[in-house]
Design a protein around this nucleic acid. Structure first.
Lengths: 301, 301
DNA sequence: TAGTGCGCTGCGCTTTTTGCAGCGCTACAA
DNA sequence: TTGTAGCGCTGCAAAAAGCGCAGCGCACTA
């Protein structure tokens, strides 16, 4: 990348002799000599004074030499930085994620990744599905974790996981012991649903339109913790994917009951990346890690 | 001096397209493309992501690009510094000088030089003749102003001026109106002579030995101002070259009377420079200016 | 589906670089 | 004083690198 002259000049100044430097550099003195003369002519200044026993830097030569050495030093530094990037020893990843994922798969995956590559830093912001899609498309974030049913043209999904919408309720709820429920069974309960201010279409609305019913919804909210506390200790039923409630379901604080609706089963969550530019190695590695974590989940029962 | 690749890479990143950059750079896209690929292979990292409509920097590429731009910027700065040196717009000159010269020719010459090249700075130190010779030989100073009768092997004299030793006295002195005096005439007066702690030979001693006489010396001193004040208002006679007393002689505060001794007439003062390394342009210019100032003096009558 | 612009590559040709041999010069020793 | 050794420098032919042309495959657009 850099002209060999930088090294040649450095070595010549070090040796105080063109012939000796040429020997060190494994080249002929004539070639080295010509390179020095050529640069001197281009600069219009002698870089060395010539004596019978060798050469000696002029004051101009000293200035140029310092520049050469600075450049070579900085180049060494850059080589280190580049190999750090190549070997994923440094980097920063911007992630936009759904609230639900931020609370479940993401922490574990980031901890794992951080154990392998401690120097990698992250920015994680939660957002609504459409915002996430847009940020990935714009390149504002490297990785998006969101629903992948309707992909932006410039976004592709690296890994997808089916995450059907079901009913979230307290264990004592009348429907809690059912293996599966129909959407119409929910008509007599108050619903809690996610609210996406920017989303124009909702598969829940589609499913209800299919059946010609309307579910009474007490709360639209984009706050998952709020939804949880509303469901807890009430007869309300949340209509959510399982992914935001994994811990509560595991500890049996809440129950998840699948809904037998083909439309609601279509919902998929994915690792979203820009289809325009290839991901740098760090980002790529993390996205694979996230995809793996996603695949490891049991979201459909 | 620097590889063209630095510019090529910069322009390609700027254009976001190899073909466009090649057009700007007046070269074929194939050649430019190969240079980029070659560097990428050497670094083991892609510098650009390739898309259908051009290229886009990778994170490694961004790091390398910054290095390239820094290098090119610094190079421009160095070009300026070099041309300053070439055109003598900057520099520093170390001068070692006899006390006498420091007080007479040197101030005027430095002022003149400074008017032409205001950015040049100086270090001026006074020293004894032998010290000056040694400093020039060692390269500790660029220019020496001292006697040039006995040159160090590695010192040469750029310009020489005969500066015979004569008698310095007050105008009312018994010998003051003589056009020339013999050394023996001085026997009845107290002498004031220069003292060089490091000098083993003295042409004054040689001259006296030649004549088989010894002059009574009241004061040996290496301080010219002291010598002046001792001569002033006394019958003492200073045995000095004219050069340290030019102003006093011109304003007729003191008189200089030549001594008819061939040995004493041998004394020469010169601009001393190292015979090893050629002087940089600034130093060379100043030494020529000093030589000219020296030649312009009238020291022999 | 044809067209456009992109990065990339094989192939000769040109330009540059290289090393060898040898020149003149200077410092130093016999 | 002469001889020698080491230095920077240069002419020349061979080797290497760089170059542009033409053309490939690919992705996107109309």
């Amino acid at each position: 990348m850099h002209d060999k002259f930088l090294n040649y000049f450095d070595e010549t100044a070090r040796q105080g002799s063109i012939r000796k430097a040429a020997a060190v550099l494994n080249m002929s003195s004539s070639s080295l000599n010509r390179k020095i003369i050529s640069t001197e002519n281009r600069l219009g200044v002698r870089l060395f004074d010539r004596h019978a026993d060798g050469v000696e830097l002029t004051s101009a030569g000293a200035v140029v030499l310092e520049h050469c050495r600075n450049t070579l030093m900085d180049y060494q530094r850059i080589l280190g930085a580049v190999s750090d990037i190549r070997d994923m020893r440094t980097g920063h990843v911007n992630i936009a994620t759904l609230d639900s994922v931020a609370l479940t798969v993401l922490p574990g995956a980031l901890k794992q990744f951080n154990a392998d590559y401690p120097q990698i830093t992250f920015t994680v912001q939660t957002a609504q599905p459409d915002e996430i899609m847009q940020m990935v498309a714009d390149g504002a974030v490297d990785i998006g974790l969101s629903f992948s049913n309707e992909l932006h043209p410039q976004v592709r999904s690296q890994a997808e996981k089916s995450t059907p919408i079901g009913a979230i309720m307290v264990p004592g709820h009348p429907l809690a012991e059912r293996d599966v429920i129909e959407l119409v069974d929910l008509r007599q309960y108050q619903m809690i649903r996610s609210y996406d201010a920017f989303s124009h279409r909702s598969i829940l609305n589609e499913a209800m339109a299919d059946l010609g019913i309307t579910l009474p919804t007490q709360i639209f909210t984009n706050s998952l913790p709020l939804a949880k506390s509303m469901i807890d200790g009430s007869n309300c039923v949340g209509l959510y994917s399982k992914i935001g409630f994994l811990k509560e379901i595991e500890t049996e604080l809440l129950r998840y009951v699948p809904v037998s609706s083909s439309i609601l089963k279509e919902l998929r969550i994915g690792v979203l990346i820009s289809s325009k530019s290839a991901l740098p190695p760090v980002q790529h590695g993390l996205s694979r890690r996230l995809a793996k974590a996603l695949r490891g989940l049991r979201l459909d029962s």
